[in-house]
Design a protein around this nucleic acid. Structure first.
Length: 222
DNA sequence: AACGTTTCCAACCGCTGGGTC
DNA sequence: CGACCCAGCGGTTGGAAACGT
């Protein structure tokens, strides 16, 4: 058993004198630590994270073990880059759910909440720099229509966390003032592009001579 | 080649809510 | 019913890699 092996290994730096250690290791995980954690989950399941150090001698906080397992080690995780289709889904989901990363991750098999959060933070930075909208007008304009309530919404429009809502849509995202430049008074986007692909890359030119749709700053800077 | 900037991502921190005593 | 513990979650940070000049 891995636990016995570890306890007998006097040279193992991960060992401690029994019980829960008072000081836990931090920083990047080693392959050896990963192996111990995977072994623990095989034997005890992916709950009781505070027992990991006690049962395996691993000098990691339960919290850290849980995170490592969920985000890196558990089976079924996808390691490939986020696809265009997934990007569309993330944008749509964020538009309707706000920053509910864990809920969003459940709808995107193989992706983790951390991954989605990282993606979105990068997107925010990119949009700020390019002065482009976080959400495409296609979504923004549809917000004027009835949307299904999500489970976190109350009936008042503003919740206790300071999040505001547009109709029934919970929105917690950077405000206009968070962006480096002023929002445009108006802006033209290609309405023919009813899917979101034109907005995947904010660097793409959006001005067209034909089939233009005027997007107000309200649409763009919710 | 060197340097600065941007992007990506793993990991930590602090808070919250549910369960238990 | 309050105190405590713990799992879960979202926000944030920091380092490495990639990219641009």
């Amino acid at each position: 058993m891995f636990q016995m092996e570890m306890e007998n290994d006097k040279s193992n730096p991960l060992l401690h004198g029994g019980g829960r250690p008072t000081v836990f290791k931090k920083g990047p995980w080693t392959a050896a630590e990963d192996e111990i954690l995977v072994d623990y989950v095989k034997n005890y399941g992916d709950e009781k994270w505070n027992d990991v150090s006690k049962l395996t001698g691993l000098l990691r906080e339960g919290k850290s073990c849980r995170l490592r397992w969920l985000n890196q080690l558990r089976p079924g995780l996808r390691k490939d880059p986020i696809t265009e289709e997934e990007e569309r889904q993330i944008i749509e989901l964020h538009f309707t759910m706000g920053s509910k990363w864990a809920q969003m991750a459940r709808l995107l098999p193989g992706r983790t909440d951390n991954e989605l959060k990282n993606y979105w933070n990068t997107r925010i930075k990119r949009c700020k720099r390019h002065c482009t909208p976080l959400y495409p007008p296609v979504l923004s304009s549809s917000s004027q229509q009835q949307q299904p309530l999500n489970e976190n919404q109350d009936v008042n429009g503003i919740n206790g966390a300071g999040e505001t809502r547009n109709n029934n849509i919970l929105i917690d995202q950077p405000t206009v003032s968070d962006f480096q430049c002023e929002p445009p008074q108006n802006m033209y986007c290609d309405a023919v592009t009813s899917n979101l692909s034109a907005f995947m890359d904010p660097g793409l030119p959006s001005l067209q001579n034909e089939d233009l749709y005027e997007v107000t700053s309200t649409d763009l800077w919710l």
